[in-house]
Nucleic acid binder design. Structure first.
Lengths: 233, 233
DNA sequence: GATGCTATAGGACATATGTCGTATCCGAAG
DNA sequence: CTTCGGATACGACATATGTCCTATAGCATC
């Protein structure tokens, strides 16, 4: 059985993509920690994340990195730069073992007339992402680190409390836009409340219920809500 | 001479929009302070801002409002919600006397097949906006109020130093995500440096050159860089 | 002009966060 | 087992920002 065809059927991608374009879909497997997209690389493909989870982040000139988004199936990656930039702005790295279907950008542009639904879908998801960023930015500007940390943890923990993204405190500090020191203070407080445990710079969530009240919906709404079927015939 | 046709020619909108859709374009004039889009209203039109300037902002549940973006010709308004939401997320208000060309959304959706260039353009501008927000968010998270204020002022002042958006300190505080008190402190400092003057809760820029170093490129890159011609035949 | 109301500016203090430096812990090498 | 080097944790202090409260200016009414 064909892997690509299987995913296409599962997510009804054929309602978005014309048959000739469907043939150009190439599967791409990534293990946790591996790059799906590297910031600065030339934009060659549009990706559909069909399995696994991933996160996108930006690296600033001073070396700090900032978390931008989490992704899960079904979502699109690389559509931000598709028509607006020759190079990827953000890096995307797999959190779990993931599968993407890659579509060459030239093929997409060439077959534009036959794929108006795909473009509507892209516009839809872009609009959604923009709105999410806007809201998250507003909240980030208003809430202290403890809320941002709680949100990150809830968004990236698995069932056992392990952190799928990074549980490294230094990296985490960069991600949520705080100093290592401040993050350490919050972690210590959370640890005191029995919310999480820490060992050698890594953390694990012990009590999800106690963590939730701190999270303020920061990342809760950032998963993809747009459904391909909505653009079907 | 036809107003709409004039703008269409000036910005080569006919390279994006099919003739039948062009006929559906309706001009819309707004004076400073008037709404172009109201948050929460049903999404009925896609707007092309062809003259004047405008700003978009979000109102949070607690009543605070947060500045999201500035717009000038040529730009698109309402494309964020076009396919992703039945209601406008942000409010857009004119800063100067402005003219928009409105396109009914049903017409856009119906004529999708014939307007792939328009959709590429929308994707391009959406990608650009998303990238801008991402960057701005990163910077906002890292820089203090004095930098955010300086950026706002530079982005919204006219040649004489008057503020086109709002020069009301209370509103301004909401916009840049600071408390009234903190904004007052920064204003006092800037006044001491001869950068601006204040009278009865309103401010005016006196020395643009002294203000610039504080601004850190926060809003500098947010204007539209996508050109319609780039999608021409 | 006196009285009083409302808005604005700014003081005082608490909190959040950042920077710097040191004590401490851990693993590796001997 | 001991010692060294680097990583980690955290105290001490500075800064940024928020909250609350009050003095006073500006304005309106009498």
């Amino acid at each position: 059985m064909d892997l690509v065809a299987n995913f296409v059927r599962r997510y009804e991608l054929d309602s978005l993509i014309s048959p000739d374009l469907l043939e150009a879909l190439t599967p791409l497997r990534r293990m946790p920690g591996e790059f799906i997209i590297g910031s600065g690389e030339p934009v060659r493909s549009l990706f559909f994340l069909v399995e696994g989870r991933a996160k996108a982040y930006r690296v600033l000139e001073n070396g700090q990195s900032i978390l931008a988004a989490f992704f899960g199936p079904l979502d699109v990656l690389g559509e931000v730069e598709l028509f607006s930039s020759p190079r990827y702005a953000l890096s995307v790295v797999a959190l779990e073992e993931s599968v993407c279907l890659a579509l060459p950008v030239e093929a997409v542009k060439k077959a534009a007339e036959r794929n108006s639904r795909l473009f509507m879908y892209l516009c839809a998801r872009l609009g959604e992402k923009l709105d999410d960023r806007n809201l998250a930015e507003s909240i980030n500007l208003r809430y202290p680190v403890e809320n941002r940390l709680a949100s990150y943890l809830l968004a990236s923990m698995d069932g056992e409390g392990s952190i799928l993204g990074t549980d490294d405190l230094g990296e985490l500090a960069d991600f949520i836009g705080a100093s290592y020191r401040q993050l350490g203070r919050v972690v210590r407080r959370f640890r005191g409340e029995g919310i999480l445990e820490k060992a050698r710079g890594r953390i694990r969530v012990l009590d999800r219920a106690k963590l939730a009240p701190y999270a303020r919906d920061l990342y809760l709404g950032t998963e993809c809500r747009i459904r391909p079927e909505a653009f079907g015939p």
